[in-house]
Design a protein around this nucleic acid. Structure first.
Length: 849
RNA sequence: GGGCGCUUAGCUCAGCUGGCAAGAGCACAUCCCUUACAAGGAUGCGGUCGGGGGUUCGAGUCCCUCAGCGCCCACCA
């Protein structure tokens, strides 16, 4: 049978990985391969709530790791026939951007300054920094983030993320601000957002309030100071404290109600050393008799326990710490401005502590010497100084009232891996305050409110002026509330703008609403919400995941998504989390240059869901080798086939050989296993199984079938082999496509029309042959292995001829072996194959001379 | 203080509902230029599955307990 004319053989002579990323990246963009079709209905769509990376920093290996995980799932779902809604977002509002802009341009924001339309930043950052208005500052933030976002997009394209780049959002853009402000106003209308003047955690460097979710504990070395107070009965009362500088802020001494030592003193008064202020001795169950002397001083405010005591015992306030972290100029009520106060005022905490210890030692009120102690101190996670507690007016969203409902939402959500839910549970269970969303910062979404001013110029906070939703987004510092004119700003009887912005989480908690264009495109929103999956890292369960659940629960009465896929961290080889500060970060673009995108993705996809994974460039080399192997094996399968460029059915023919059927049966099981794994978000298992199958396919099946495929056993036998080979290749390419999008697309293009990434995910049922016996391939592989071993032991080439091979095995396996004798003899170059029944398997090999 | 996870070859890890005379890759050793692949291929060396106890015909796999590591949470004067 003469081979038909081949118009063009698309299999390259020497397949290479080089150039595939540029080639296919451009093609996917031109063809709109990953473009989202918004005409599809909710049930046809698979919607992903992509984490928007913080653009004021750089993408690191950890990002590459976790975004690859999501991309494999997106590609799987797309091939399964879902229309995948997979936008990218950039988180560009908030403190990180402010800090970067300050350093990059050498500016600082002064909200009191007027806007300067002609402002251009100096060429080199000046020191000290130039003060600029808030609108000027915001302009600079926008200018810098646009640049960052370009480079981020470039990296993601190199990595091969299958996002629709036409749907990108940013958290500072007007659309995001509109969604964020709308969400806030609706909570305000429902009474779920409220303002309160209360002691809150305060960062003295950033000079802003901090939410519970942004706290972290750090171990510091401090010292217990035993301090003598004047007791009510004339005797001394001693307390232990790590913060003696707060003595002037002391408002009471406290002991446990059942503490017999102090029971008689409750209700009487003690006197503070140095300041001579009389403070009550009170009882509260939080005081621990075993700790120190059993008596503690309550200050306003040294820590959150002080706040609890102060609130529950209705104590007065003696504020001594200012918002800049220094001791105030004016002493609190009852403290004399002369004497010890003069020694402390204006000092920061550390110097104040040093000084007051000297004073106490001089006055004889320090008992013994300070005893060093290691203790946990609360910090803002981005901060460098311990947090103080400052009384201020702040905005909150109610969470405590909804604790049970939020726990129920956590149980409704499907977690991958499931044990990650424990982190959510412990966070929600441990909530101790509502969600503080206002920040005294500049580059963020403004709290969209104004306040009426009284005739005396006082701010009437109780009467916020609310903009109509149609006006959003508004900036209260420049926009004017309905019914007022600009010249009434900050005038008695006029209005004033709310100066605060919302915390970045208050906006990013709405990523499903922002990406789905809740405020601007209700039709789209209905098609994508609630979404299918939130992929994210475990460290931000208490912030991003939690806050998103809160917003969706309060606004829509539902979960924001049905599944949460939690990824782990990348650890450096010393098992520490990779981070910039440790100086062990490898740049992602360098990795892609060195190993190639498919190889890097292979490493990433090998990391189990939720599991912290070691950075391992050995794995990337393995991934690269796998990609090369796919090129070469594909070339073998396709290159000699005469009908190559024609349609897939050019390889029509029946699979008749037992060996081919056995291989396809194994492949069918693989497809089912990979599908199940992917549906449970276990991409790593899908990859591992596919890879294992592929290597044994190459090592054993390909070797066994080679001679027959070339026509060594006649046309019909060759047809079976070639049919099975192409079927297997087509299947494996699709199984690998989510992981290795570039190399699979390349091979696909050699013989198929369209993108492999829009091809249908394989179906195990279509591969399975009715009378397949998997044993055939197993036995043949085992015998082939023994023959190879014999050749290796004899230090002979694999081409060496085998004069005679005696296979001993069970009758069942011998029967299976009989159906592949010709293939086996071809592959092993065996002249004579003899079988003997035996209990255990063995092969006796005699090489030809 | 409470909780979660991990502990399997030198290294990085699989091992899902108990059947494994314990697996992969890397590294290492020996051999092989074989027409898919020498930036390859073949073969091999290497582990009493953290310790102890229990359930079971049978445990890396289930239960108890101890230890180490990591993380999450906690009102840590």
């Amino acid at each position: 049978m003469p081979a038909p004319e081949v118009p063009e053989n698309r299999v390259p002579e020497k397949p290479r990985l080089e150039g595939l990323e540029e080639k296919w990246g451009a093609r996917w963009e031109a063809d709109g391969t990953y473009r989202f079709d918004r005409s599809k209905s909710r049930s046809e769509i698979y919607a992903i709530d992509t984490p928007p990376p913080t653009v004021s920093g750089s993408l690191h290996v950890g990002h590459v790791f976790s975004y690859t995980h999501t991309d494999t799932v997106a590609r799987f779902r797309r091939m399964r026939g879902r229309e995948v809604f997979y936008p990218m977002g950039w988180d560009d509002n908030g403190l990180p951007t402010e800090r970067r802009v300050q350093n990059y341009f050498g500016v600082r924001c002064d909200p009191a300054l007027p806007y300067d339309p002609g402002f251009t930043p100096p060429d080199t950052p000046p020191s000290p920094p130039v003060a600029v208005s808030r609108p000027n500052f915001v302009e600079l933030c926008l200018r810098l983030t646009v640049e960052d976002e370009k480079s981020f997009e470039e990296l993601w394209r190199r990595l091969g993320l299958s996002v629709d780049w036409g749907m990108t959002y940013t958290t500072i853009a007007p659309e995001a601000q509109r969604a964020s402000q709308r969400g806030f106003l609706r909570l305000l209308a429902k009474g779920e957002a409220y303002q309160s003047v209360a002691p809150t955690l305060w960062d003295v460097d950033f000079q802003t309030a901090i939410a519970q979710a942004e706290l972290e504990d750090r171990e510091l070395t401090g010292a217990y100071h035993r301090i003598r107070f004047g007791g009510p009965d004339g005797a001394a009362m001693e307390i232990d404290t790590t913060r003696p500088e707060l003595i002037p802020a002391c408002v009471a001494l406290v002991a446990h109600p059942d503490d017999e030592r102090y029971k008689p003193l409750f209700g009487s008064e003690a006197t503070t050393p140095l300041f001579g202020v009389r403070v009550p001795v009170v009882a509260h169950p939080l005081a621990e008799p075993e700790k120190g002397t059993g008596v503690a001083m309550i200050c306003t405010f040294g820590d959150v326990t002080d706040v609890t005591w102060w609130r529950e015992l209705k104590l007065p306030v003696r504020t001594i710490v200012g918002r800049d972290g220094r001791i105030l100029a004016e002493p609190p009520d009852g403290v004399s401005p002369s004497g010890a106060w003069q020694e402390l005022t204006g000092r920061k905490m550390e110097p104040a502590r040093t000084r007051i210890v000297e004073l106490l030692r001089d006055s004889g009120d320090l008992v013994g010497e300070p005893r060093p102690v290691k203790h946990a101190v609360k910090f803002y996670e981005r901060g460098t100084k311990p947090l103080e507690i400052v009384t201020s007016r702040q905005w909150f969203i109610r969470t405590l009232d909804h604790r049970e409902a939020l726990l129920a939402r956590g149980r409704e959500l499907r977690w991958h891996p499931p044990y990650m839910r424990a982190r959510y549970e412990s966070w929600v269970t441990g909530l101790n305050s509502d969600w503080l969303i206002s920040r005294q910062r500049f580059f963020g979404v403004p709290v969209p409110l104004w306040y009426r001013l009284g005739d005396d110029g006082s701010v009437l906070y109780e009467e916020p002026l609310v903009p109509d939703e149609s006006r959003l987004p508004v900036d209260p510092s420049t926009d004017v509330p309905e019914g007022f004119t600009a010249d009434q700003r900050d005038q008695p009887g006029g209005f004033t703008g709310e100066p605060d912005v919302m915390d970045t989480w208050a906006t990013s908690s709405l990523t499903p609403q922002i990406a789905g264009r809740w405020a601007d495109d209700p039709d789209l929103f209905r098609r994508v919400f609630p979404m299918d999956v939130r992929p994210q890292a475990h460290e931000i369960i208490r912030t991003w995941l939690f806050s998103t659940v809160v917003r969706s629960h309060l606004e829509h009465g539902s979960l924001p998504w049905s599944d949460a896929a939690i990824s782990g961290w990348v650890l450096d080889p010393d098992r520490k989390k990779m981070s910039k500060s440790k100086g062990n970060v490898v740049t992602p673009i360098g990795l892609l240059d060195q190993h190639g995108a498919d190889a890097v993705r292979y490493w990433a996809a090998s990391g189990r869901p939720g599991v912290d994974t070691a950075f391992d460039d050995g794995q990337m080399k393995v991934g690269r080798r796998l990609a090369i192997k796919i090129l070469n094996a594909s070339k073998f399968v396709l290159s000699r086939l005469s009908l190559l460029p024609a349609a897939p059915d050019a390889f029509e023919g029946n699979v008749t050989a037992a060996l081919d059927k056995a291989m396809l049966a194994g492949l069918a099981s693989l497809v089912e296993e990979a599908t199940t794994a992917f549906e449970g978000y276990d991409y790593a298992r899908a990859l591992e199984r596919t890879e294992t199958f592929f290597w044994s396919f190459c090592d054993d099946y390909l070797e066994l079938v080679k001679g027959r495929a070339y026509g060594g056993q006649g046309d019909e036998a060759a047809a079976s082999a070639n049919r099975a080979l192409t079927l297997a290749l087509s299947t494996m390419l699709r199984l690998f496509a989510p992981f290795l999008p570039f190399v699979t697309e390349e091979v696909w293009s050699w013989w198929k029309e369209g993108s492999v990434h829009r091809a249908a995910w394989p179906d195990g049922d279509e591969l399975r042959q009715p009378d397949a016996d998997p044993l055939v391939l197993d036995v043949a592989s085992a015998v082939l292995g023994e023959v190879r071993k014999a050749k290796t032991v004899a230090q002979a080439s694999m081409r060496a001829d085998v004069a005679r091979a005696v296979v001993r095995d069970t009758p069942e396996r011998i029967a299976a072996l009989m159906s592949v004798v010709s293939d086996l003899c071809d592959a092993g170059r065996i002249t004579e194959l003899v079988t003997r029944e035996a209990e255990t398997f063995s092969v006796e090999v005699t090489l030809a001379q």
